[in-house]
Amino acid sequence: MHSRRKLFRTAVALGIAALAATTVVLAMGAREDGERKIMVVLKSVGAEDAPDEEMEFWQIVRHGMKTASQEYGLNPTIVGPPRERDIDEQVEIFAEVVAQRPDGIILAASDYEALAPLSKKAREKGIALVTIDSAVAGDAAASFVATDNLRAGEKAGAEMGALVSERKPVAIISHIHGVATAIDRERGVRQGLEESGAFTILGTFYADNNPELAYEIAIDLMNDHEDLGGIVTLNENTTVGAGRAIRNRGRAGEVKLVGFDHSKEEITFLEQGVIQALVVQKPFNMGYLAVQTLREVLAGRRVDAFIDTGSRLIRKTNMYEPQNEQLLFPF
């Protein structure tokens, strides 16, 4: 009797162990498929009065996120202020998101400093944080997924270096003073030019992200320097302003223009030969890689602190190549 009971107990124990193992495996399988709660805080989710290009950029980022989410079976909630300039509102939204304690957050910070304390708090709560496009101060983010602006700038600088003769001076028009992306781009441009030859750089001029101011700066540059070889502009508004100036002065092709981004006006200028080259970012990849990276972080794998989503230099000659077409003309 005694040992039969033992046999029975052993059998029951084995059975329960097997059952438990199966349950655990099934549960883990279900977990793997992802009931992970992921939240995305963007700089802008769009508003009536928001600039088209701004909306377009974030829409493509979201499209990339959606593609990755579908592939990995995730379902992120995307929130953000209506416009990029609503920094305080973004801080508020981010605070709410952190309070909800999701498993992971993707953040595109409107301000380098303003979102840093909350990011730190999120990290302390054990929330995985990945920043995209613009970083936050501190080391709260597991990874920063963005365009390598230094490299993007280098491409623009090298292109300018190839377009103009060393004897002619060149100028840089930056959209803003003291912002990391602008600083990186400018440094990149200078490096690119340096590597191409001994160029005279007239200086970096700040246009306060205003196309009209950029226009005036470009006009002044052309007036002051008869032999101006070219201008490198660091974002859409400065490029558009400088483009208009060159077109209006009838010096298209004579004064070379290498700019950033891809508004319709810029594309027209590119086609017209006012702009020789545009450096464009890859927002789709940014969105996609952000989700992919966050998933890696949540899975406990190591990720690089910085992930370059890439940029591409597009000239008139290759603007309709399939690879560039989608960057210039997103659906």
């Binding site: 789709f284 990849n285 996609y288 399939p322 989608q326």
Partner: peptide, 16 residues
């Protein structure tokens, strides 16, 4: 060999 439509066209072009 050109892609007419692909939901992840950009990733393919970027070799991702």
């Amino acid at each position: 060999g050109d892609l007419v439509y692909h939901p992840q066209q950009q990733l393919i072009y970027s070799n991702l």
